[in-house]
Write a protein that binds this DNA or RNA. Sequence first.
RNA 1: GCCCGAGUGGCGGAAUUGGUAUACGCGCACGACUUAAAAUCGUGUCUCGCAAGGGAUGCGGGUUCGACCCCCGCCUCGGGCACCA
Length: 824
Amino acid sequence: MKEYDHNKIEKKWQKEWSDGDVYKTLDSKKAKAKKLKPFYVLDMFPYPSGAGLHVGHPRGYIGSDVYSRVKRMQGYNVLHPMGYDAFGLPAEQYAIEHKIHPRKAVDINVKTFEKQLSIIGLSYDWSRRVNTTDPEYYRWTQWIFLQLFNSYYDTKKNKAENIDSLVKVFEKSGNAKVNAHHTCKIIFSGKEWKNFDALKRQEILMNYRLTYEAESEVNWCEGLGTVLANDEIVDGKDGKQVSERGGFPVEKMIIKQWSMRITAYADRLIKGLDTLEWSSHIKEIQKNWIGESVGSEIEFKIKDNDEKIKVFTTRADTLFGVTYVVLAPESILIEKLSDQIKNKKEIEKYISDVKNKPEEDRKSAEKEKTGVVLEGIYAINPANNEEVPVWVADYVLSSYGTGAVMAVPMYDERDNQFAVKYNLPIIDRPLVDIKEITEMVGGKIVTKYKMRDAIFARQRYWGEPIPLRRDRDGIISSVKKLPLELPKVTSYEPTGKAEGPLAGVKAWVKDGYETNTMPGWAGSSWYFLRYMDPKNGKSLVGENEINYWKNVDVYVGGAEHATGHLLYSRFWHKFLKDIGVAKTEEPFKKMKNQGMILASDNRKMSKRWGNVINPDEIVKTYGADTLRVYEMFMGPFDQSLPWSTESIIGSRRFIERVWRLSAKVSNSKTSSELEKVLHKTIKKVNEDIENFAFNTAISSMMIFVNEAEKNECISVSDFKMFLQILAPFAPHFTDELWHEMGEQKSIHISGWPKYNPKKIIEDSMKIVVQVNGKVRSELSISIDATDDQIKEIALKDKVIISWVNGADIKRVIYVKGRLVNIVV
RNA sequence: GCCCGAGUGGCGGAAUUGGUAUACGCGCACGACUUAAAAUCGUGUCUCGCAAGGGAUGCGGGUUCGACCCCCGCCUCGGGCACCA
């Protein structure tokens, strides 16, 4: 018997697999010729950070690898690729810290990453690797940007449409009745449209485009020199907002920015969640993030004025209890009403004070609410024609609902606080039916969302250039020839202004290109489509390929991307579906989220704590097979677990026991008892892997080995079946033993064993007998026994008779195949 | 504050989702092999009790023949949102 030398075996098989193209994915044409069905298993591609991997990083990759290997063995044409998300802040920060160009830093980091990953024995088809910073890749990111730019959202057809068709409508009949998701505040006729100059038209269309430029409030991070998305910000120690990366302070600012109209898809993004096999936890987070709420829009007339105040409320049933109305300080109505406002100066001062106040003060719930009454202005409650005062107050947000609120201090806590502070009446009126009252006052039921449009620009160098140019008159046009390559700069450090380092490239600016670049999520929002057809120079993905693969079948990655990547990808995918590129409504049908591996001190692994365990070391001492088995065995896949180098020995022992078990393989038959255990194990492993319950799959294989060791021999065919179910977890040494059993081809393309239902049938069953719910006896009864027979046998059992002790038997409950409970 | 999730031996965890709680593994103890050690193998290992038996799934109650699982009220930890009308 050879010694188990993991280093030798693992090196040998990794080379064999690579030389033999064992994990090569077939393109659709070849696959169809062979009648192979597609199966797409995807890992979230990493930022190649350069810090090196710790033992926790590969956990998700190992899980998805096990799953992919099973699918491959089951005869699917498996697409299991890997690539790099290398644009964006992490890569750029690393480059700045290490004083090298981000391009070089990315290349170095990718190499380090691949070297570390290669020793784990993952079954990627490396020939399909993508990198978001590759011009041949970001050419298509830019292409998608332009498609969005040239589209608007048709709310009637409920899909994106080309902006040209909207222009035609404008020409014909203006915009009064368009069915479009927009922010356009002016109404014009077809005639007026024709008289608008090009700049005016551009300005109007900007309100409809799915990628648009607008003044918007942004999170400005001085430390990183850029604007950040809401999901890139976290609460700092003192409760103030800081950047997730680096922990720098973040403040609100109004800047003209490129944005994406994700809000147009809010409804579809919520509805689609029901069709997804994702953890309910992540669906819940997305649902809350999108924040759908159904309520009523109700108009309050203004006394002695033609203007109206439109409020949004989810509590129209409290309409009779309204004692005042509040406008957000940003409300344009205030300007319109100014002639009638008696305390104009005071109002103006209040508004400017609010604007200069940091947003975090304004948003904190503990903060005292402030406000000023608009003297001379009264709103008329449409339900009872009562005149109520109108206030401006900073607790009303302009960005949500209609930017105006009807205040019902009796029922709303915030209104109540405000009313108490400013001595406003609090009245108790009976509640009415929401639907009825809304109809009665001529309002309508509408749906509002908390989600905001996504800002699509970063004031940084290391990102995709925005493929637009602006001529001297300010007219924007699409760049015709993609990719628009990122120019070389002398300094890629942040400039600290609302423009990026590209502003320092004279030729770039002269040509009218944008100095902002795209945010990190641009390249990662569609990469899964590129893997289907990574070298296609004519289109983002070929028709044949996308029709074959359709979408990702199983997506594996961290749960922390719930409101970022996973939402943006769904948004883009839906858009790509609308324009005919994607073929399904959702990109990721099923998703599994791996838990983090913590250090043994239960903290995150980090250089800072000095508790990092390096996978290279573990592979060297214990082997990749052991590492893989251990990481899958240590606990539920989606749960965060502490690493224990002490416990890994159990997985190593398991592998060695299988290795030694091969000495018991012979041509004689396996005992029927062991055969039964084997087939049960095959059944269990198959089910468990399908559910990503890898830990219990391994434990059942351990039970089989324990059982097998008690036997004198095991047949070649039975042992081979066992190797096959173990192979996805420990691919190297199982392939070695497989060949030792006389096989020529790799075990990983050898087929997946099926259990034989006949071989797991028991001829007797173990029935537990309880008296009043307490276990008192155990019986072995023939499988053919009827329910009544079983009850009778239980009642006649000596132990049971002594427990019942002649008492009246009230009930006898029989649970099929499990237990009898006798109630006395 | 609001919305999710979790809490089981010394440790990681299992339990067919209402039916034998603690599978599997680590650790520990004892034994075998060995001059010895390592490795390996065997036995034991929730708790009280000599035993018969009793008690334990964060705490307190409830439903049920039967509850880790369902319901009500707490506690602790993790995650999400946060003046969203």
